[in-house]
Design a protein around this nucleic acid. Structure first.
Lengths: 163, 163
DNA sequence: GAAGATTGAAATGTCAATCTTA
DNA sequence: TAAGATTGACATTTCAATCTTC
Protein backbone atom coordinates (compact mmCIF):
# COMPACT_ATOMS: atom_id res chain seq x y z
CA UNK A 1 0.00 0.00 0.00
CA UNK A 2 1.90 3.01 -1.26
CA UNK A 3 1.09 6.65 -0.78
CA UNK A 4 -0.43 8.23 -3.84
CA UNK A 5 1.78 10.99 -5.20
CA UNK A 6 -0.79 13.44 -6.50
CA UNK A 7 -0.13 15.79 -9.37
CA UNK A 8 1.26 19.23 -8.66
CA UNK A 9 -0.78 22.20 -9.85
CA UNK A 10 1.48 22.58 -12.85
CA UNK A 11 1.27 18.90 -13.74
CA UNK A 12 -2.49 18.99 -13.41
CA UNK A 13 -2.66 22.00 -15.72
CA UNK A 14 -0.29 20.36 -18.17
CA UNK A 15 -2.28 17.13 -18.21
CA UNK A 16 -5.58 18.87 -18.80
CA UNK A 17 -4.06 20.97 -21.56
CA UNK A 18 -2.63 17.87 -23.15
CA UNK A 19 -6.02 16.11 -23.09
CA UNK A 20 -7.60 19.16 -24.68
CA UNK A 21 -4.91 19.44 -27.32
CA UNK A 22 -5.15 15.77 -28.18
CA UNK A 23 -8.90 15.80 -28.68
CA UNK A 24 -9.11 19.10 -30.51
CA UNK A 25 -6.25 18.18 -32.81
CA UNK A 26 -7.88 14.87 -33.72
CA UNK A 27 -11.18 16.55 -34.26
CA UNK A 28 -9.70 19.26 -36.45
CA UNK A 29 -7.55 17.01 -38.61
CA UNK A 30 -10.39 14.55 -39.13
CA UNK A 31 -12.80 17.32 -39.99
CA UNK A 32 -10.41 18.91 -42.49
CA UNK A 33 -9.83 15.60 -44.25
CA UNK A 34 -13.45 14.52 -44.42
CA UNK A 35 -14.65 17.90 -45.60
CA UNK A 36 -12.35 17.95 -48.60
CA UNK A 37 -14.23 18.12 -51.91
CA UNK A 38 -15.03 14.73 -53.40
CA UNK A 39 -12.60 15.10 -56.27
CA UNK A 40 -9.82 15.24 -53.67
CA UNK A 41 -11.21 12.75 -51.13
CA UNK A 42 -13.92 10.73 -52.88
CA UNK A 43 -13.86 7.89 -50.38
CA UNK A 44 -14.05 10.15 -47.32
CA UNK A 45 -10.81 8.92 -45.80
CA UNK A 46 -10.17 10.12 -42.25
CA UNK A 47 -7.10 10.50 -40.07
CA UNK A 48 -6.79 6.78 -39.34
CA UNK A 49 -7.05 5.92 -43.04
CA UNK A 50 -4.44 8.53 -43.85
CA UNK A 51 -2.06 7.07 -41.33
CA UNK A 52 -2.45 3.58 -42.80
CA UNK A 53 -1.94 4.80 -46.36
CA UNK A 54 1.11 6.85 -45.35
CA UNK A 55 2.77 3.95 -43.55
CA UNK A 56 2.12 1.54 -46.41
CA UNK A 57 3.54 4.05 -48.88
CA UNK A 58 6.84 4.09 -47.01
CA UNK A 59 7.17 0.34 -46.54
CA UNK A 60 9.22 -1.88 -48.87
CA UNK A 61 7.03 -2.79 -51.87
CA UNK A 62 4.38 -0.53 -50.34
CA UNK A 63 3.11 -3.39 -48.26
CA UNK A 64 3.12 -4.53 -44.63
CA UNK A 65 2.00 -7.62 -42.77
CA UNK A 66 -1.30 -7.08 -41.00
CA UNK A 67 0.17 -7.60 -37.57
CA UNK A 68 3.14 -5.32 -38.22
CA UNK A 69 0.79 -2.62 -39.39
CA UNK A 70 -1.38 -3.14 -36.32
CA UNK A 71 1.67 -2.66 -34.10
CA UNK A 72 2.79 0.47 -35.86
CA UNK A 73 -0.59 2.17 -35.77
CA UNK A 74 -1.23 0.86 -32.23
CA UNK A 75 -4.51 -0.81 -33.12
CA UNK A 76 -6.18 -4.08 -32.15
CA UNK A 77 -6.04 -6.54 -35.02
CA UNK A 78 -9.78 -6.77 -35.38
CA UNK A 79 -10.08 -3.02 -35.88
CA UNK A 80 -7.35 -3.05 -38.47
CA UNK A 81 -9.07 -5.90 -40.30
CA UNK A 82 -12.21 -3.81 -40.45
CA UNK A 83 -10.47 -0.67 -41.70
CA UNK A 84 -8.48 -2.53 -44.28
CA UNK A 85 -11.74 -4.10 -45.46
CA UNK A 86 -13.08 -0.62 -46.12
CA UNK A 87 -9.93 0.48 -47.92
CA UNK A 88 -9.99 -2.69 -50.02
CA UNK A 89 -13.62 -2.08 -50.98
CA UNK A 90 -12.64 1.35 -52.26
CA UNK A 91 -9.65 -0.04 -54.10
CA UNK A 92 -6.97 1.85 -52.13
CA UNK A 93 -5.46 -1.28 -50.63
CA UNK A 94 -5.36 -4.93 -51.63
CA UNK A 95 -4.75 -8.03 -49.55
CA UNK A 96 -1.95 -10.32 -50.64
CA UNK A 97 -1.40 -13.75 -49.17
CA UNK A 98 2.00 -14.42 -47.69
CA UNK A 99 3.95 -17.14 -49.49
CA UNK A 100 6.38 -18.03 -46.75
CA UNK A 101 3.80 -18.09 -43.95
CA UNK A 102 0.44 -19.23 -45.19
CA UNK A 103 -1.34 -17.88 -42.11
CA UNK A 104 -0.20 -14.38 -42.93
CA UNK A 105 -1.48 -11.60 -45.12
CA UNK A 106 -0.08 -8.36 -46.46
CA UNK A 107 -1.90 -5.09 -46.89
CA UNK A 108 -0.60 -3.61 -50.14
CA UNK A 109 -1.11 -0.03 -51.27
CA UNK A 110 -2.57 0.02 -54.78
CA UNK A 111 -1.72 2.60 -57.41
CA UNK A 112 -5.08 4.16 -56.73
CA UNK A 113 -4.27 4.25 -52.99
CA UNK A 114 -0.99 5.96 -53.72
CA UNK A 115 -2.73 8.60 -55.79
CA UNK A 116 -5.29 9.10 -53.05
CA UNK A 117 -2.51 9.66 -50.54
CA UNK A 118 -0.87 12.24 -52.81
CA UNK A 119 -4.13 14.16 -53.06
CA UNK A 120 -4.76 14.07 -49.30
CA UNK A 121 -1.25 14.88 -48.13
CA UNK A 122 -1.21 18.66 -48.68
CA UNK A 123 -4.30 19.22 -46.56
CA UNK A 124 -3.24 16.90 -43.79
CA UNK A 125 0.34 18.12 -43.61
CA UNK A 126 -0.98 21.66 -43.75
CA UNK A 127 -3.11 21.03 -40.70
CA UNK A 128 -0.29 19.47 -38.73
CA UNK A 129 1.89 22.47 -39.58
CA UNK A 130 -0.70 25.10 -38.85
CA UNK A 131 -1.89 23.71 -35.52
CA UNK A 132 1.38 22.35 -34.21
CA UNK A 133 4.74 22.94 -35.81
CA UNK A 134 4.19 26.52 -36.90
CA UNK A 135 3.43 27.32 -33.27
CA UNK A 136 6.57 25.66 -31.89
CA UNK A 137 9.96 27.29 -31.66
CA UNK A 138 12.94 25.20 -32.82
CA UNK A 139 14.01 24.80 -29.18
CA UNK A 140 10.58 23.57 -28.19
CA UNK A 141 10.62 21.09 -31.04
CA UNK A 142 13.95 19.77 -29.80
CA UNK A 143 12.67 19.40 -26.27
CA UNK A 144 9.48 17.78 -27.46
CA UNK A 145 11.09 15.14 -29.65
CA UNK A 146 13.57 14.31 -26.92
CA UNK A 147 11.04 13.72 -24.22
CA UNK A 148 8.67 11.92 -26.54
CA UNK A 149 11.47 9.47 -27.31
CA UNK A 150 11.93 8.85 -23.62
CA UNK A 151 8.26 8.64 -22.80
CA UNK A 152 7.50 6.26 -25.66
CA UNK A 153 10.41 4.08 -24.55
CA UNK A 154 8.80 3.76 -21.13
CA UNK A 155 5.40 2.89 -22.55
CA UNK A 156 6.85 0.46 -25.05
CA UNK A 157 10.37 -0.80 -24.32
CA UNK A 158 10.38 -2.87 -27.50
CA UNK A 159 9.84 0.09 -29.78
CA UNK A 160 12.88 0.62 -31.91
CA UNK A 161 14.32 4.05 -31.61
CA UNK A 162 14.81 6.00 -34.81
CA UNK A 163 16.57 9.36 -34.60
CA UNK B 1 -2.76 27.41 -54.94
CA UNK B 2 -0.03 27.46 -52.34
CA UNK B 3 3.09 25.36 -52.14
CA UNK B 4 2.82 22.60 -49.58
CA UNK B 5 5.43 23.05 -46.90
CA UNK B 6 6.28 19.46 -46.06
CA UNK B 7 7.46 18.37 -42.64
CA UNK B 8 11.18 18.32 -41.94
CA UNK B 9 12.69 15.01 -40.87
CA UNK B 10 12.63 16.09 -37.26
CA UNK B 11 9.02 17.22 -37.45
CA UNK B 12 8.03 13.97 -39.11
CA UNK B 13 9.75 11.99 -36.35
CA UNK B 14 8.15 14.15 -33.70
CA UNK B 15 4.69 13.77 -35.18
CA UNK B 16 4.96 10.00 -35.45
CA UNK B 17 6.25 9.79 -31.88
CA UNK B 18 3.39 11.94 -30.72
CA UNK B 19 0.81 9.75 -32.45
CA UNK B 20 2.38 6.70 -30.86
CA UNK B 21 2.51 8.28 -27.42
CA UNK B 22 -1.09 9.40 -27.63
CA UNK B 23 -2.44 6.01 -28.57
CA UNK B 24 -0.29 3.99 -26.19
CA UNK B 25 -1.03 6.31 -23.30
CA UNK B 26 -4.78 6.05 -23.89
CA UNK B 27 -4.55 2.30 -24.22
CA UNK B 28 -2.52 1.93 -21.06
CA UNK B 29 -4.59 4.22 -18.86
CA UNK B 30 -7.82 2.64 -20.05
CA UNK B 31 -6.46 -0.84 -19.51
CA UNK B 32 -5.24 -0.04 -16.00
CA UNK B 33 -8.60 1.40 -15.02
CA UNK B 34 -10.75 -1.34 -16.47
CA UNK B 35 -8.60 -4.11 -15.05
CA UNK B 36 -8.93 -2.89 -11.49
CA UNK B 37 -10.60 -5.43 -9.20
CA UNK B 38 -14.36 -5.09 -9.00
CA UNK B 39 -14.32 -3.83 -5.43
CA UNK B 40 -12.37 -0.81 -6.69
CA UNK B 41 -14.04 -0.34 -10.08
CA UNK B 42 -17.32 -2.28 -10.03
CA UNK B 43 -18.84 -0.41 -12.95
CA UNK B 44 -15.79 -0.77 -15.20
CA UNK B 45 -15.28 2.98 -15.63
CA UNK B 46 -12.76 3.93 -18.29
CA UNK B 47 -10.63 6.99 -19.00
CA UNK B 48 -13.52 9.01 -20.42
CA UNK B 49 -15.72 8.21 -17.41
CA UNK B 50 -12.91 9.19 -15.07
CA UNK B 51 -12.51 12.52 -16.79
CA UNK B 52 -16.22 13.27 -16.45
CA UNK B 53 -16.31 12.31 -12.77
CA UNK B 54 -13.18 14.37 -12.03
CA UNK B 55 -14.53 17.49 -13.71
CA UNK B 56 -17.90 17.21 -11.98
CA UNK B 57 -16.15 16.77 -8.64
CA UNK B 58 -14.38 20.10 -9.07
CA UNK B 59 -17.40 22.07 -10.25
CA UNK B 60 -19.55 24.20 -7.93
CA UNK B 61 -22.13 21.90 -6.28
CA UNK B 62 -20.43 19.05 -8.09
CA UNK B 63 -22.56 19.68 -11.13
CA UNK B 64 -22.22 21.08 -14.64
CA UNK B 65 -24.60 21.88 -17.47
CA UNK B 66 -24.51 19.21 -20.16
CA UNK B 67 -23.24 21.60 -22.81
CA UNK B 68 -20.55 23.05 -20.57
CA UNK B 69 -19.36 19.57 -19.76
CA UNK B 70 -19.38 18.68 -23.45
CA UNK B 71 -17.20 21.70 -24.19
CA UNK B 72 -14.74 20.91 -21.43
CA UNK B 73 -14.27 17.28 -22.39
CA UNK B 74 -14.33 18.16 -26.11
CA UNK B 75 -17.16 15.80 -26.95
CA UNK B 76 -20.19 15.99 -29.21
CA UNK B 77 -23.38 16.37 -27.18
CA UNK B 78 -24.88 13.11 -28.34
CA UNK B 79 -21.86 11.17 -27.12
CA UNK B 80 -21.97 12.89 -23.77
CA UNK B 81 -25.68 12.11 -23.44
CA UNK B 82 -24.92 8.45 -23.98
CA UNK B 83 -22.06 8.33 -21.49
CA UNK B 84 -24.00 10.21 -18.85
CA UNK B 85 -26.83 7.72 -19.39
CA UNK B 86 -24.45 4.91 -18.48
CA UNK B 87 -23.16 6.72 -15.41
CA UNK B 88 -26.72 7.47 -14.32
CA UNK B 89 -27.67 3.81 -14.69
CA UNK B 90 -24.84 2.90 -12.37
CA UNK B 91 -25.77 5.62 -9.91
CA UNK B 92 -22.58 7.66 -10.21
CA UNK B 93 -24.29 10.69 -11.72
CA UNK B 94 -27.82 12.06 -11.67
CA UNK B 95 -29.57 14.42 -14.05
CA UNK B 96 -31.09 17.55 -12.56
CA UNK B 97 -33.38 19.86 -14.47
CA UNK B 98 -32.34 23.47 -14.68
CA UNK B 99 -34.77 25.87 -12.98
CA UNK B 100 -33.77 29.06 -14.72
CA UNK B 101 -33.62 27.54 -18.21
CA UNK B 102 -36.13 24.78 -18.64
CA UNK B 103 -34.40 23.45 -21.73
CA UNK B 104 -31.28 22.76 -19.75
CA UNK B 105 -30.03 19.89 -17.62
CA UNK B 106 -27.24 19.43 -15.11
CA UNK B 107 -25.13 16.35 -14.65
CA UNK B 108 -24.61 16.04 -10.89
CA UNK B 109 -22.05 13.79 -9.21
CA UNK B 110 -23.76 11.59 -6.62
CA UNK B 111 -22.20 10.58 -3.33
CA UNK B 112 -21.65 7.17 -4.83
CA UNK B 113 -19.96 8.80 -7.83
CA UNK B 114 -17.68 10.77 -5.54
CA UNK B 115 -16.67 7.60 -3.72
CA UNK B 116 -16.05 5.86 -7.02
CA UNK B 117 -13.77 8.71 -8.08
CA UNK B 118 -11.81 8.47 -4.82
CA UNK B 119 -11.25 4.77 -5.36
CA UNK B 120 -10.15 5.22 -8.98
CA UNK B 121 -7.92 8.24 -8.51
CA UNK B 122 -4.80 6.56 -7.11
CA UNK B 123 -4.52 4.15 -10.02
CA UNK B 124 -5.20 6.72 -12.66
CA UNK B 125 -2.94 9.39 -11.20
CA UNK B 126 -0.31 6.73 -10.69
CA UNK B 127 -0.41 5.89 -14.40
CA UNK B 128 -0.17 9.50 -15.49
CA UNK B 129 2.82 9.94 -13.20
CA UNK B 130 4.58 6.75 -14.17
CA UNK B 131 4.20 7.13 -17.93
CA UNK B 132 4.51 10.87 -18.23
CA UNK B 133 5.52 13.17 -15.41
CA UNK B 134 8.08 10.93 -13.76
CA UNK B 135 9.85 10.81 -17.11
CA UNK B 136 9.91 14.60 -17.58
CA UNK B 137 12.49 16.95 -16.15
CA UNK B 138 11.17 20.12 -14.51
CA UNK B 139 12.51 22.13 -17.46
CA UNK B 140 10.72 19.89 -19.93
CA UNK B 141 7.51 20.26 -17.96
CA UNK B 142 7.85 24.04 -18.18
CA UNK B 143 8.44 23.95 -21.90
CA UNK B 144 5.57 21.54 -22.39
CA UNK B 145 2.97 23.53 -20.50
CA UNK B 146 4.04 26.70 -22.23
CA UNK B 147 3.72 25.41 -25.73
CA UNK B 148 0.53 23.52 -24.97
CA UNK B 149 -1.01 26.81 -23.84
CA UNK B 150 -0.03 28.37 -27.12
CA UNK B 151 -1.09 25.45 -29.27
CA UNK B 152 -4.46 25.09 -27.56
CA UNK B 153 -5.04 28.80 -28.04
CA UNK B 154 -4.56 28.37 -31.78
CA UNK B 155 -6.92 25.41 -31.95
CA UNK B 156 -9.51 27.08 -29.76
CA UNK B 157 -9.22 30.87 -29.46
CA UNK B 158 -12.20 30.98 -27.09
CA UNK B 159 -10.60 28.73 -24.52
CA UNK B 160 -9.92 30.66 -21.37
CA UNK B 161 -6.33 30.49 -20.26
CA UNK B 162 -5.64 29.31 -16.75
CA UNK B 163 -1.98 29.16 -15.92
C1' DG C 1 -35.93 30.95 -35.74
C1' DA C 2 -32.15 29.39 -32.56
C1' DA C 3 -30.25 27.01 -28.35
C1' DG C 4 -30.11 22.89 -25.10
C1' DA C 5 -30.51 18.29 -25.08
C1' DT C 6 -31.99 13.74 -26.59
C1' DT C 7 -33.23 10.02 -29.93
C1' DG C 8 -32.90 6.56 -33.72
C1' DA C 9 -30.57 4.46 -37.43
C1' DA C 10 -26.42 3.44 -39.39
C1' DA C 11 -21.31 3.21 -38.99
C1' DT C 12 -17.58 1.81 -36.38
C1' DG C 13 -15.06 -0.26 -32.43
C1' DT C 14 -14.27 -4.03 -28.99
C1' DC C 15 -13.72 -8.56 -27.16
C1' DA C 16 -13.96 -13.24 -27.09
C1' DA C 17 -14.38 -17.11 -30.07
C1' DT C 18 -12.97 -19.35 -34.43
C1' DC C 19 -10.31 -20.96 -38.26
C1' DT C 20 -6.06 -22.06 -40.40
C1' DT C 21 -1.26 -23.03 -40.50
C1' DA C 22 3.45 -23.13 -37.82
C1' DT D 1 0.11 -25.74 -28.46
C1' DA D 2 0.70 -21.12 -30.24
C1' DA D 3 0.68 -17.38 -33.91
C1' DG D 4 -1.74 -14.75 -37.73
C1' DA D 5 -5.87 -13.15 -39.06
C1' DT D 6 -10.85 -12.95 -39.35
C1' DT D 7 -15.67 -13.34 -37.67
C1' DG D 8 -19.80 -12.53 -34.93
C1' DA D 9 -22.13 -10.58 -31.11
C1' DC D 10 -22.39 -6.69 -28.67
C1' DA D 11 -21.03 -1.73 -27.15
C1' DT D 12 -20.16 2.79 -28.53
C1' DT D 13 -20.00 6.67 -31.69
C1' DT D 14 -21.77 9.48 -35.33
C1' DC D 15 -24.97 12.28 -37.82
C1' DA D 16 -29.10 13.91 -38.90
C1' DA D 17 -33.61 14.54 -37.18
C1' DT D 18 -36.61 15.70 -33.19
C1' DC D 19 -38.51 17.87 -29.18
C1' DT D 20 -38.81 21.54 -25.98
C1' DT D 21 -38.06 26.09 -24.42
C1' DC D 22 -35.74 30.61 -25.25
Amino acid sequence: VEETRWLTAQEQTGWRLYLRFQKMMNERLTEELTRLPSDVNPYGADKADYEILALLSEAPDRQLRMSELADVVVSPRSRLTYRIDQLVQHGLVERIKCDTDKRGAFAHLTESGWEALLRLAPSHVGGVRKYLFDVLTPEELDVMTQFLHRVVAVLDPHYEVIT
